[in-house]
Amino acid sequence: MSAIISVKGLTKNFRELNAVDDLSFEVEESVVYGFLGQNGAGKSTTIRMLLTLVQPSEGTINIFGKELKKHRKEILRRIGAVIERPDLYKYLTGIENLRIFATMSGIKASEKKLMNELERVGIAQRAHSKVKTYSQGMKQRLGIATALVHDPDLIVLDEPTNGLDPQGIADIRNLIIHLSKDLHKTVFISSHLLSEMELIADSMLIIDKGKKVVEGKVNELFDPSDMIVQLKTTDNASAIEKLNISDLKKFLYHKSADNIILKLHRDEVPLLVKRLVQMEISVMSIESRHSLEDYFLSLTTGQRHVGAS
């Protein structure tokens, strides 16, 4: 499959702050690509660079095989996006808001087409009500409708389930799966609801403090029978050195001065403990984790990582 988004060496500095640091990744066609990171990790800045709201300090972004900087309009015509909370014109009705963004996307949408879009996100019955009377969930749905109204090939969603009730979250999840699997759209989605990502994402990228921590297909990164083991020792540097020259090297997934993470099958955990003792590594604690959320937390907590395997 070809890469819809190709990012190389993307960096953004805000004076002293290094918001995004040498980030590279690729998003393939027709996948749901999860973009994870804690608050302040650089997700929003990255998404804003993908959408030309923020200019990169360094690096290149290619979308649909073309350089974003040179083909901005052509590329944006094929992208639909919602960034953070979808603020709209509160004194206008839902359908008026939708018409505005459809026109700005270069299409003349009929009343029927606009109503269909509102139907798709489940707010057609409130199409002619002013947005100021909408609940947060309804605004979120209208925001998603504005992203889809011009039938884009790439959909960028930043926290799309914010403010939604459980039924609303399930509806949006089904809509994203439908867009990807049935309509073959590419969806680039950031969310803090990691359990949701586990259900919908094909691939994912985790960033922390502007740097890539890990990228890959979800089923390869996280197999239900895999365990994520976080190791704390009295001397991490020495422990990493010993692990690097041992048969345990193949389990090493992430290593830093503060954090050693190993990924292995659950049946291999006893063997790991045995070998650590044999290698005289002074273990302070060993924690096994097995959900994506735990995995995410194990990768992004603590101090800046000095390297990832």
Binding site: R48, L51, T52, L53, R72, K73, E74, L76, R77, I79, A81, V82, I83, E84, R85, P86, D87, L88, Y89, K90, F101, M104, S105, G106, G143, T146
Partner: peptide, 12 residues
Amino acid sequence: MGTLRLSLIRPV
């Protein structure tokens, strides 16, 4: 209002 970012991600 937060609508500036929604407007500027359009092909304008």
